[in-house]
Design a protein around this nucleic acid. Structure first.
Lengths: 160, 160
DNA sequence: ATAGATGCAAATATTTTGCCGCCAG
DNA sequence: CTGGCGGCAAAATATTTGCATCTAT
């Protein structure tokens, strides 16, 4: 390959860098899935989140917009979106306990990198990771549809 | 770099390919940590497992060797080993529900690749993945200590 | 001898299910 | 209108905690 360094890391704390506002809702509409009041609220919460949210967070934020929503509906909506492949589920190395976090499926895969001390989570894309996926598809004869990479360590400030 | 293909994938269903029998126990001894009857049994179960086990599996297998062990002890031992960095925690893309699976920390990092249809999990090592980690350490000024990569897709037999 | 580990019971946390009334299309 | 959806309560599952007792060193 070429000798130039494979710098393709574009970090950022923002979760939904690739999110077009209303994308999820449009997607459900396109697939003829019923858009209820509760779903609209939840989709909006997910699309505008600037950090990773778990079911509890989603409920709390949704209630702030419209209190007429139940915990169970949050879980059922999460399940729906997961099945449709519109959101990803993470657990961020269990850094914050055993809950699951959700993020709207980005255009490109990215890697989650968490500092084990300060808990900050960064997201990066990487050409190398894309190559890795292609290599696995080739060598193991797999069709990859989902990936989840969570890397833990110590950031510059927290280095021991 | 060289033009030869980066084939470094060494798969296999076996979990503890790199495990020396008694490694975990020796490690605890070396660190002056009390080796109780229950811990010995659990360490043995972990070292000899040929597939990923969750807390429930660990308890069941431990009880087969010596029934005098409680569920709580399993959780406490898992916690101990996690804190010491001797085992890794996975959830295999929640393919089998929301439990956690454990594996004794291998010499080299590996990637878990699961077929979303038949559920088979394969483990591979990859040079590209090692490069990816080094790239991240360099570019983000991180010291990486843990990684967890879970890739889902469809294997050759299950391809739609 | 004694710090630390275990067992048991109960608490917590998280997610799922059953059932019935409601509402988006 | 009506089949899918949401609310409520309760169950299921997974994990943690308090405390008295035991045991590895």
């Amino acid at each position: 390959m070429s000798p130039r360094p494979q710098r393709r890391i574009s970090s950022g704390e923002r979760i939904n860098a690739y999110e077009k506002r209303g994308r999820l809702q449009a997607e459900l509409g396109r697939r003829g899935i019923r858009l209820t009041r509760q779903r609209r609220v939840l989709l909006r919460v997910m699309e505008t989140a600037r950090r990773h949210l778990d079911a509890h967070d989603l409920l709390r934020r949704a209630k702030r917009i419209d209190p007429r929503i139940d915990r169970v509906t949050v879980y059922r909506t999460i399940d729906l979106l997961k099945r449709l492949g519109l959101i990803d589920e993470l657990d961020l190395l269990h850094l914050r306990g055993d809950r699951h976090f959700y993020e709207s499926h980005a255009a490109r895969d990215h890697i989650h990198i968490a500092c084990l001390r300060c808990g900050k989570v960064r997201e990066v894309e990487s050409r190398l990771f894309e190559s890795l996926k292609r290599q696995i598809e080739r060598d193991l004869h797999m069709k990859i549809t989902t990936t989840r990479t969570e890397i833990g360590g110590y950031c510059d400030a927290c280095r021991p």
